[in-house]
């Protein structure tokens, strides 16, 4: 067929075409021009790209992110049967970090044990760093972070719960990614000693909590609860009675765990299930095993 001249395409068609490209091509095409760089790094575009990739059945990609909390080492394991592709990722920090959940391709990192928190999209190499909220050390004996997403205001939320020494519960602060601001939500009586990594399900971080039963102090009941960013409250999903060792919360939700387990051998890991496009969440802890 003879070569036809190339007409100019309107913006919305270019946008549509670009949202169908793999991340690697997009990162290369940032070099096309300033307007292309601005488009490709625009949060709205990133979101529609993710939506595009995750609704296209051929594109579903599962990734596990392994992150060392000792040194700035992070890699992704891209699961695509029959091979697994392992790639080292350049981290947005100079020290180790711990992953507290992931959602829509964004990970919540706790850098260098509370030095800084960071929302990081490893696929697009974009991040937002911020300080954890201030809470006097002598008043707390533990804390937990969680990542959530408020679909109404289209905003990533970070939950920080500080467990009070007094036993009065926990002080909860919530960070809005859009406003780049912490807000103190209040003291919650029933949220002391939450465990788990805040596995994200349906946009909300989930934890579990062990409670003794008043009539049988030796028998423990386990509650799974989550933070709901719309009502700004914690909600209990269900109470279960654990058998043997306390299960990691991932086991409660994951149906895909067995397939991961086969090839991950004996690594210590935590994974939770999510429907996702660019990055499937997972928060394994291992020290540079790859």
């Amino acid at each position: 067929m003879e070569q036809w001249g190339l007409p100019n395409l309107p913006f919305e068609i270019v946008y549509d075409i670009l949202s169908r490209l793999p991340v690697k091509s997009l990162c290369r095409f940032k070099s096309v021009s300033n307007p292309w760089l601005a488009l490709i790094t625009n949060p709205e575009f990133v979101k529609s790209h993710l939506h595009h990739q995750s609704t296209n059945a051929n594109n579903i990609s599962l990734k596990i992110i392994l992150c060392s909390f000792i040194s700035p080492f992070c890699c992704s394991v891209y699961y695509q049967a029959p091979d697994h592709i392992v790639a080292q990722l350049e981290m947005p920090c100079k020290s180790g970090a711990e992953i507290f959940g992931s959602l829509n391709g964004v990970l919540l990192l706790d850098i260098d044990i509370d030095e800084e928190l960071c929302l990081w999209n490893p696929s697009f190499r974009m991040y937002q760093k911020f300080s954890p909220p201030k809470c006097p050390d002598d008043r707390i004996d533990g804390k937990i972070y969680g990542l959530g997403y408020d679909s109404i205001s289209d905003d990533f939320k970070v939950v920080a719960a500080f467990f009070l020494v007094s036993g009065a519960g926990s002080v909860v602060h919530v960070f809005s990614s859009k406003l780049s601001l912490w807000k103190r939500i209040g003291v919650f009586r029933y949220t002391r000693y939450l465990y788990g990594l805040g596995c994200v399900l349906n946009g909300a971080p989930h934890w579990y909590q062990n409670l003794s039963q008043p009539d049988r102090p030796d028998a423990r009941l386990m509650y799974v609860l989550y933070y709901d960013s719309v009502s700004e409250d914690f909600k209990v999903v269900r109470a279960i009675r654990p058998r043997g060792n306390v299960p990691c919360i991932a086991h409660l939700f994951s149906s895909k765990l067995s397939s991961w387990k086969r090839w991950m051998g004996d690594f210590s890991y935590e994974i939770c299930e999510n429907r996702s496009g660019t990055v499937l969440n997972g928060a394994p802890h291992c020290d540079c095993l790859f």
């Binding site: 690697k24 290369r28 095409f29 070099s31 021009s33 300033n34 307007p35 292309w36 190499r125």
Partner: peptide, 30 residues
């Protein structure tokens, strides 16, 4: 390559050579 994509979409390269090198360096892996 991005240079070819630039031509296909008739995009004017408004980077200075330094800027273009910097953007490329940031995305070296790609």
């Amino acid at each position: 390559p991005h240079q070819e994509v630039r031509e296909i979409f008739h995009v004017e390269n408004d980077y200075t050579p330094e800027e273009e090198a910097a953007v490329r360096e940031e995305n070296r892996w790609a």
